[in-house]
């Protein structure tokens, strides 16, 4: 082998690889669908919680704003599912970095931006699936609300859940473990209770505490179209504040990690 010339052609074409990687996106979606825990967290638990908490007969007749209480619970659970999906997606990135997958990718022509885009899109696809499943179950189980409230509520739940992708990424760095979602799942459930996502909190010290819980702001914004009232100012402060904390925290960890890799 010492004197043979290389068999490789002299000229190579190397197109700059695209940001849009359909094979990678398909693979990521397949991985999510194959992960039983992800499917239970995002596609099964939210509609089941809705059926448990939202379908008492009294809720069907009790009206709130542009719909009934059943619809209120449905929209809340849709947001909960979307939050779980994006949190799991964000946590997945830091887990993959810890496992050396990102390093492996750096040995290929794939651009880092294409990696981030693919992870974000796949997390958002699952978040959307979660919202759609919960709303579909809700609509056939007695939820009544105006089309505008449904579309706007679902849209805000879906897009707003992106804040929790940063939360998942940040937490994935703080608690780097393959089963980090086993911790984050219950944490999200606790935050959903404390922030008034599962059960509205009226007055008292708990209502004050709720305003500082990361789920509070998104819950208020998501339910505003249904309630037909403008969300209070604390909801915006809450979403922007926690969004900033998660994004800055994740970005700092991410940068330190990239410097090392």
């Amino acid at each position: 082998m010492t004197t043979t010339a290389t068999t490789t052609p002299a000229v190579r074409t190397a197109p700059r690889t695209s940001l849009w990687q359909p094979v990678y996106l398909r693979t990521e979606l397949r991985r999510l669908a194959r992960n039983r825990r992800t499917v239970i967290f995002t596609l099964v638990m939210p509609p089941v919680f809705f059926l448990l908490f939202g379908t008492q007969s009294a809720y069907g007749t009790q009206s709130v704003g542009n719909g009934n209480v059943t619809a209120y619970v449905m929209i809340s659970m849709a947001l909960y599912g979307a939050m779980l999906a994006t949190t799991a997606g964000g946590a997945g990135v830091s887990i993959e970095r810890a496992q050396g997958w990102s390093r492996q990718l750096r040995l290929t022509p794939l651009r880092p931006a294409a990696y981030v885009l693919t992870k974000v899109v796949s997390a958002l696809v699952f978040a959307l699936a979660s919202v759609v499943v919960t709303c579909a179950v809700g609509l056939v189980s007695g939820a009544h609300l105006s089309t505008r409230a449904l579309v706007l509520g679902a849209l805000i739940a879906w897009v707003g859940s992106a804040v929790f992708a940063a939360f998942g990424l940040f937490m994935g760095y703080v608690l780097p473990a393959e089963n980090v979602m086993q911790i984050l799942g219950p944490v999200l459930a606790l935050m959903a209770f404390a922030g008034g996502l599962f059960v509205p909190i009226d007055g008292g010290v708990f209502a004050t505490i709720a305003k500082f819980i990361p789920t509070y702001g998104l819950a208020e914004l998501t339910r505003a179209p249904l309630l037909g009232t403008a969300p209070n100012v604390w909801a915006y402060v809450n979403v922007l504040g926690w969004g900033l904390v998660f994004v800055v925290g994740a970005a700092r960890r991410f940068r330190r990690d990239t410097a090392r890799v």
């Binding site: 690889t17 997958w101 492996q104």
Partner: peptide, 30 residues
């Protein structure tokens, strides 16, 4: 980026939940 050099690293760098073929098909797409 031109695919003219590639490497076999010591450890890590694989996704456990993919099959061997899926890992190859994914990387080949890059």
């Amino acid at each position: 980026a031109h695919g003219r050099v590639s490497a076999v690293m010591q450890t890590g760098g694989l996704l456990k939940d993919l099959t061997v073929r899926e890992t190859l098909e994914l990387t080949a797409s890059f």
